[in-house]
Each structure stands twice: as structure tokens, then as C-alpha cells.
Design a protein around this nucleic acid. Structure first.
Lengths: 347, 347
DNA sequence: CTTTAGCACCCCCGCCGGCGGAGTGCTAAA
DNA sequence: TTTAGCACTCCGCCGGCGGGGGTGCTAAAG
């Protein structure tokens, strides 16, 4: 039982069928297809071909004697081999570039990127926060609080400020904290966080008797300040409500699951992690994601990279599987490229 | 044409009707009401009374010869005069108190409060960020960035850290920035932000020729650092997805509008602002909010206050008008009280 | 005057059957 | 291999029908 060959003509018809279905959402029949496939074939012939496509699992009839609808497999083939991507026009690229304000701080930038994605695609836009692999410590500062607590302020990579409260064994004076901070700044400024963490660990391992009180305090505090710092992944989502506009999302129960998945983040982070394996645009169709909540949805992602081709993170959109891939793909692609470019100078 | 008097018995029946409707969501008929109103009346009598209630606009029949459903006016009367609030049990109060961790920083606290509200009520929980009326400047610090830009870090009220990038006329050295920060800290530490702003303005007005270069730079920078700082209101929302579980929210289009309102924040902030007029629990039923998006929804709010009865902010829940007010009201009330208590020590 | 039983009536809702439209698979001819 | 013809299938829509829940009115009882 050999698979029927999928010849040129069948591919062409599959393409026409999917494009048509993407446009109007209806099952596509042989007559319609005969009309706008471009090929000069009768409906009867087309029926034969489409029956083959069905046997191959590329299309599917919702019920006997209805037109055909693409299956996930059909979409897969379409995306891998058939889709003709429409490049974005220069003015559109221009607009995107302008929206991504190089002056803004990282999180604002992420937000405008995902807002843009959602606006351009009328679906939900997602931007995963960039990896902090190369977070360099810019500055550290301590402020005394009440009850043996100290507020640690870290400045990382030029302009990202983080702060946390740490517990100390005894109260510290302002002056003492300043000395500690000075020591740490002198020691570690400009180095990246993994390095700093490693060095701190080394210091700890060393003979603690032989290091002075100041250093010991400094190391203890720094240790606390940097801990838990190891990249808690997160993302910025925008335009979820766009998804409520699609009939294929009309089921409130499913919609709810989807939105809960957005809140819980697990599934999304997982999926976006996967798409880091390869560079460039990647597409997960329905079940391919491995998560039930994304049934009937596709996720189009792209990694964004610094000038030296180091992957900084990943962004994308999520919407119904029936989406206009020919337009979505370039939008995601271009946004990723531009975001990478804007983000680059700050590393 | 005088309004029919709403006597004791009619009120009792209205109460029973609304309680019943809240429980099962169905229109309530005379037979049902006769059974579980507690009064020993025949359905026929009840029909007469309920017809009066309808004339008064307190209940409404979805169609001829159907049971009755409360109107907004009916709910209003119910809430103002009839509802018997069930106080929370001590263990429940205990649980809430434990969830609100006094050690956490403000925004974490807001998040757990709204998560709690949404969990306890199975609706959406909202906590408006506390007013920063009495924000005291704790510490200010500057770090040089490239291109005549400076990163300003403000520590406010013990542990809230804010930062912004400011433009300067010329590049500054690290040492110079430190001197400026020292000057500002010496001058303003511990004072609240409005005062600081006013003093800065005064200094600006003064004869700029007679103040030295350092001070001038300091004032310019501080000016920039503090500007735009004037309380951008915001809130923390949790459990929106709970709302997707109610049949009265089954209409995706309306749901979408509601969620968009959550994102845009305008309507919500406005409504919460209104409820600051009075202390304690307040309830907006459907149209009363003045916003169409909240049709069929009720918003239950309560202000939370410091020990000296100064209102710090407001929190609440939003859900379908058909909600169990007897339970929701105390939950919101208690949460507000406890949040006020936890928040208090830090001012 | 109030309460109640009885009764006719009303409207919603779910169900069924018929019908038109769209599209299919098969067969046989070109 | 392609195509016309044809019988068939299924969906969606409409209208009719019946049952159930509930009402308003009337008249009698308290």
C-alpha cells in the first residue's frame, strides 16, 4: 500500500484549497476550487485529486458530502513547501522600526514589540524576555532597613535596575554598607553575573578565617543579593483579547483554558523554549505544540539575535491555525530582526 | 398614582426571590416561592405580591408567563436593606491574614491580595495600588550612562525602588554625580515627594546666578528625576478567567469588551476612584457604574486604610450581578481591613 | 378586604419531518 | 486520463406540534 504520489498538480490544488479556506473559513468544494485554482480542470477531476489528498491525510471532510478543510498535516505541508510569503513593504518595516524605540528600557521595549505584533496580526503577541546570559553587573548598593534587613539595589547592563531585601545576621550602619558596596563594586563591576556568582562561591570555599570581617560581610550579602537571580523566564503578552474575535475560538470553555495557560505561563514558556533550538521563524500547528490548550491554534515564533548572531530571546504570535501565514510569517520575522537590532547596542 | 407600599411581607418575598435566583440563576415562579419563602401563603397570593413588585420595578419577567428575575433596582434594595451578610469564620480570616505576608514588598502584597480575592470569590479580584501621598524620599543615586544620559535611582518609603533615565546637557563623571546625589540626599532625605518637588521649584525660582554649579546641576537632575512621578494610578487584577465560567458571561463579544476594559484600565480606575468617596464597602450594580462594559456585572469595593484611618487605596471584586453578596461582601471587607493593617507599618 | 382555588391562556423550548442547497462518489463515455 | 451525468448524503432552516411552567383573572371563601 504505497502512498499516492503528491504530484505538482495535487500540490497546487492543496495550496489553492488552503489559501481559500484561510480566506473564508469554509470547507472548500470542488466547484469553487475549479473556479479559482487557476488550473483548467473540471470539478470532477478535482474531486479525484482531492480524494487523493484526503487519503494522504492532508485534508478532511467535516461530514460526507461537504467540502474539504485542511488537516494539521495539510497545514504543515503548506507551510513547509507551498506558502508564498508576501514580504513586507518598506513603509511597513519603517513603521515597525519606529515603534521600537532604542531609547526605551528593556521592558518597555518588550511591551511595544508585543503590542506591535498583536496589532499587526490581529492576534496575540508574545515577547519572551531576553536571556540574561551576559548580564554584567554595573553597580551595587545597599541601604539599611529596620530589623536586620538590608535593601540591595543592583544595576545590570546599563539600565536595568533590580532590588531585593536581604536578611542579615546583625544590624549594619549606613557607612559600613557603603564600604561593603564599594568593595563589591571595585571587585566585580563590569563582570557578568555567572562569573560573579562563581567567584563569590570560590571566596566562600576559601579559608574563611583568613578573610577580614568586611569582606566576609560583603560576600555574604552579595551571595544573598545574587541568589534566585538565575533567569526566571518570563514573557510579555499583548492583544490576547484579539483572539476572542475568531469564530474558531467561540467556545468559552476552551478560551478560558487558553487564557489560563497564558497566566500560568508554563506551557507558553515551554513552547518558546523549544523554538530556541533553531534560529529564525518556526511554526507550531495545533497539536504539534504538545499542549492541548493550543488545539486549533498555531504559534509562530522567531528568535531575535544580537549583531554577532547570538540568540537573545524569542518572540511570536499565537492565533487560530487558520491564519494568514503569508503575512504573519514576515511580520514575526521582521519584528524579530528589528528587535534584535535595537536591543543589540546595549550588550 | 401613588407607589404601592412595600410592606414587610413584600420585602420578605423579594428577599427570598433574589436569594433563590442567586442560587440557581433561574426565573423564580410563585410556586417555588411559596415553597421556600418560609411564609405560609398560597402561590396565588404570592402572584399578587410579586405583581406589585413588578409594578415597582424591582423584578421583571423575561417574557409573559415566566417566573421573575430581579432588576438592578431590586438588587439595590436587596443590598441596601435586605441582605443578611454571613460574617466570615475565624479560621477563614486567619487564612487570609496568613496569605498577606507583611514582609513582602508592596507590589507582591497587592498581587497576593487580588489573587486571594479572586480565589475566595471565584470572580475577578482587583487591588488598586496605594496612593503615594506620603511617599518619603529615602535615597537617590545617579549612574552615568552613555550619550549624556544618567540613570537615576530613587528609593521611596523603605523599599520601593524606581528608576528612570534622564538627559543631561553635558556628560557627567561618576564622582560628580556622587557629589550631586550626596547633596540631594542630605537636603531631602526623609521628606515626602510633594514637599521635595515644591522645594525644588522654589530653588529654581530663586536667583540662579547665585547658586553654584553643583547645586544647579543637582536641581536640574532632581527635577527630571521626580517629574512624571505624580501618581500614575494602576491596579493589580487576578482571576479574570474565573469570569469565563459564568453562563451570564457566555457572550464572547461582551466578554471581550470586558477584558479590553481591564486592559485599558480607564473605566476600572474611574470606578474605583468613585468608591474612594466613602469609606468601607461599596457596591456598583450593572449600569450604576456608568460604563456599558459592566452591564450584568457588579463591582464590590472596599477602601483600605492605615491605623489612623487614612485611606490608602481601594480593592474589590468584579463578577456577574447575580453573585452571592452575603458572602462576597464580608470577604471584600475583611480583606480590605487586613490589607490595611499589613500595609500600615510601612508608612 | 384579603386570601385562595380554579381555570384559561401564554410563551418558551425541544422535537420532528420536510425541503433546498451544496457537494460528493461512482459510472460510463469521450 | 478527463469529464459529464446522476444518485445520494448531509447540513441548515423552517414550521408545526406538544408539554411544561407560569401567569392573570375571576369568583368564592375567610
Amino acid at each position: 500500500m504505497t502512498e499516492p504520489a503528491i504530484n505538482e498538480r495535487a500540490q497546487h490544488l492543496l495550496k489553492a484549497l488552503i489559501e481559500r479556506h484561510i480566506r473564508d473559513g469554509q470547507p472548500v468544494g470542488s466547484k469553487t476550487l475549479a473556479r479559482d485554482s487557476g488550473l483548467d480542470l473540471s470539478p470532477a477531476t478535482i474531486r479525484n485529486v482531492v480524494a487523493d489528498l484526503e487519503r494522504m491525510g492532508l485534508v478532511h471532510a467535516p461530514h460526507t458530502s461537504a467540502g474539504r478543510v485542511p488537516t494539521e498535516l495539510g497545514y504543515r505541508l503548506f507551510i513547509d513547501n507551498l506558502v508564498s510569503v508576501k514580504p513586507l513593504g518598506a513603509p511597513e518595516v519603517q513603521t515597525i522600526a519606529e515603534q521600537l524605540d532604542a531609547e526605551a528600557d528593556t521592558s518597555t521595549l518588550m511591551e511595544s514589540a508585543s503590542a506591535m505584533l498583536s496589532e499587526l496580526t490581529r492576534m496575540a503577541g508574545v515577547v519572551m524576555l531576553p536571556f540574561q546570559k551576559h548580564e554584567a553587573l554595573r553597580h551595587i548598593e545597599f541601604l539599611p532597613l529596620s530589623d536586620n534587613r538590608v535593601l540591595a539595589i543592583l544595576v545590570i547592563n546599563e539600565r536595568d535596575v533590580q532590588n531585593r531585601v536581604i536578611q542579615t545576621a546583625r544590624p549594619y550602619e549606613r557607612a559600613e554598607l557603603d564600604r561593603i558596596a564599594n568593595y563589591l563594586n571595585a571587585q566585580f563591576e563590569g563582570q557578568d553575573l555567572p562569573t560573579v556568582r562563581r567567584k563569590l562561591l570560590d571566596e566562600m570555599q576559601g579559608d574563611r578565617e583568613h578573610i577580614d570581617r568586611l569582606m566576609r560581610s560583603a560576600i555574604d550579602m552579595a551571595q544573598q543579593a545574587f541568589e534566585g537571580e538565575a533567569g526566571a523566564q518570563d514573557y510579555v503578552l499583548a492583544g490576547e483579547t484579539n483572539l476572542m474575535g475568531y469564530e474558531e475560538m467561540a467556545d468559552v470553555a476552551r478560551l478560558r483554558q487558553l487564557f489560563e495557560a497564558f497566566n500560568e505561563k508554563r506551557a507558553m514558556l515551554d513552547l518558546f523554549d523549544k523554538s530556541l533550538q533553531a534560529q529564525g521563524v518556526q511554526i507550531f500547528i495545533g497539536q504539534e505544540s504538545g499542549y492541548e490548550v493550543f488545539d486549533n491554534c498555531s504559534v509562530v515564533t522567531a528568535t531575535y539575535s544580537s549583531a554577532n548572531d547570538e540568540v537573545l530571546g524569542v518572540l511570536g504570535v499565537i492565533g487560530p491555525t487558520r491564519m494568514a501565514y503569508d503575512r504573519i510569517i514576515p511580520v514575526v520575522d521582521v519584528t524579530a530582526k528589528l528587535l534584535g537590532r535595537v536591543l543589540n547596542p546595549r550588550n
